[in-house]
Design a protein around this nucleic acid. Sequence first.
DNA 1: TCGGTTCAGAGTATT
DNA 2: TCTGAACCGA
Length: 817
Amino acid sequence: MPDLLANLNDRQLAAVTLPPQHALILAGAGSGKTRVLTTRIAWLIQTGQLSPAGVLAVTFTNKAAREMTARLSAMLPINPRGMWIGTFHGLCNRLLRAHHRDAALPQSFQILDSADQLAAIKRLLKASNVDDEKYPPRNLQHFINGSKEAGLRAKDVDVTDDYSRRFAELYAAYDVQCQREGVVDFAELLLRSYELLERHTLLRDHYRARFAHILIDEFQDTNVLQYKWIKQLAGPASSVLAVGDDDQSIYAFRGANVGNMAAFEREFRVSNLIKLEQNYRSHAHILECANQLIRRNGSRLGKELWTDAGAGEPVRVFEAVSDGQEAQWLIEEARSLIAEGWMRNDMAILYRSNAQSRVLEHALFSAGIPYRVYGGLRFFERAEVKHALAYLRLMENPADDTAFLRVVNFPARGIGARSVEQLQDAARAADSSLYAATAVLKTGAASGKMLGFVGLIERLRTETRSMTLPEAVEHVVERSGLIMHYQTDKEGQDRIENLRELVNAAAGFLSEQGVGQDVPANLGVASNAVPEAPATTETPSARPPMVAAPESLFDLSSANAGSQTASVGDGVDDGVVDGNAFIQTTPLASFLAHASLESGDNQAGEGTDAMQLMTVHAAKGLEFDAVFITGLEEGLFPHENSAQEVAGLEEERRLMYVAITRARKRLYLSFSQTRMLHGQTRYNVRSRFLEELPEDNLKWLTPKAGALRPSWGGHGGQGGYGAYGERASGSAGQGGSRHALEAPPPPPWAANDARVAARFDRGLAWRIGQTVAHAKFGEGVILGIEGSGSDARVQVNFGRQGVKWLALSVARLEAVN
DNA sequence: TCGGTTCAGAGTATT
DNA sequence: TCTGAACCGA
């Protein structure tokens, strides 16, 4: 047996071999966090202190869960499937499937992703005749999710005025609608299983006794509800190990509550706080920058990274004239790295916002450098894939109105908005699903077409009955008419490819689950083990409502005392319920859940050696030999929407900290004096974060201009803007860049720069782009000029002081340079 | 039901 | 500048 503890440093060793008590591990970037987490589990099992079934390990992303599982199987000679390792949502799904009756859900409840949820909300607003101008669907969605993530049902929400009262009412109506349709949104997965555990004490006690060790990754990213969920599952005999890094908390905007770390320390009386501060990733110059920067944040738990890997190279800083020039410089730099043998895969370009990628992509494309952009549409989010899934969902759960509406007329079968509205009215009157309401519709051509659609779904269900999951998916993709529809579409080839890929995904899913490929998609694998078989009613009219009436919606408690005992006894201990959630339901249902919970990779081409482009957020958790952090400008990074408040600014600073700590060997920071944003050229001041880095660890590739002042000052003519060659040779002269650029041909951005330059000279005393000084606000750059004479006003970007309009007759401005 | 036009808005994002 | 959504006419 391999020695698990070999090569751990003292702190890591201490964390891995902690006694069974609650503990908080403050794990700095690159400090071997995942290794500690997995080795801890392996060590506990290997030393006989813990059985695999006693493990609950929670992550945020499927990727992290997969990595943990993979590392564990490499360390231990056991099948990690017996452990509960997964995302919060994945584990909640598992819990709810296993105890669906106690949770008042149909066994094959469907999961709404954010887009589905928004569609459901829009439908609700329309049905309730709500003015969606006054109550925008997106706001309501935000409100609902925010409330749920705080652990609040509609009745618990603080109502302060008519407006919020209406929101709360709509929240309640939305929950009723979801319940009627047998669907749950992401937040509901969490909240529902939280309530399940809260109300069913037997169930809760069972799991509390079972999970001897609970481990949570990225604890700084947990929201209030997730923390409550953990508290629900942690019993008197459980040990909770929370691993996180408050300095890498960058998701407050989506509900993460760093305060959970301090709360955990207090509420669990944590006596074991271990800091992992030795960094195995970056050279010292890079770490020094990270440390110095993050020290400016208040209210940290406190941590300083160190390395014994040596100083390495200083961090290079480049000032560009335009975003185009920034991109061009970056390409030259990347090219020389590639020439030196660096892998493109090991080089990343980071930016604060997605909009910045365009210029970079354009330049990379023109230069013929392969690149890969992270983000964007994921596989299961593609329209054609969602269409196919909607057919499958409808087969599984006819009450799913969201799925119904998505495909009732796709491919087009002559069912227009009018017919759908009629159907919706009928459904509302009968308090039934749209699917069931088709039987109620008596008259009109609409009725016939609707019945035809329902007939199609019924047929698909019957025809696929004895097929395996991939066969069934293929059958549906074909017979729904989707393939044929896309064949006539001239851009449909890719979509057809994706539909074929969906069939592969289904096959891959089966083998991942370790289930034979010959199991019928529609049949419960172990349906005998489940008290009630899935509903198999044939006709829509005869199909009973999927779930209990809305009145009983949140009555998860007393009435079920009997079944509570039963479900614990039923399955938990003989492994049925605690096994893979797949076992309790049909392959199709679990595949659909899988599709919702794991949106899939966003792009192919992972194998190719390409430069990696992504936002700083997306880079969290990754590392690269060389990293370019671009667009380090006030207003962009830190972003103008965040820089006004201390909390916002500190999160931006943590974001910068995350960005810096991605780099192993070489780090480049760049900013540009001008940047195209929203179709307009913006004049920017360099980011304050650059001032916050220790000068000793930096190497300026361009001369460092005075504080926060662009260096092009008052030169208005075009000459100043062909300055790239000038500038670059200057930096080479300073011994800066290794590959001096010698008077290149007019670069592609020159034209734009010339336009920019032309705008400077308006014959006024002040020019756009000019640097000025103000007694109170300091130095800034003129962004715009309005009016004339005594009415003349100028708009000035004072960097951290913000953008101000100043009347020239009042404000005393001085030209700088 | 479709295709075109018009308009507003534009940050980061996992499940 | 670019995108997505809403709207209108055929």
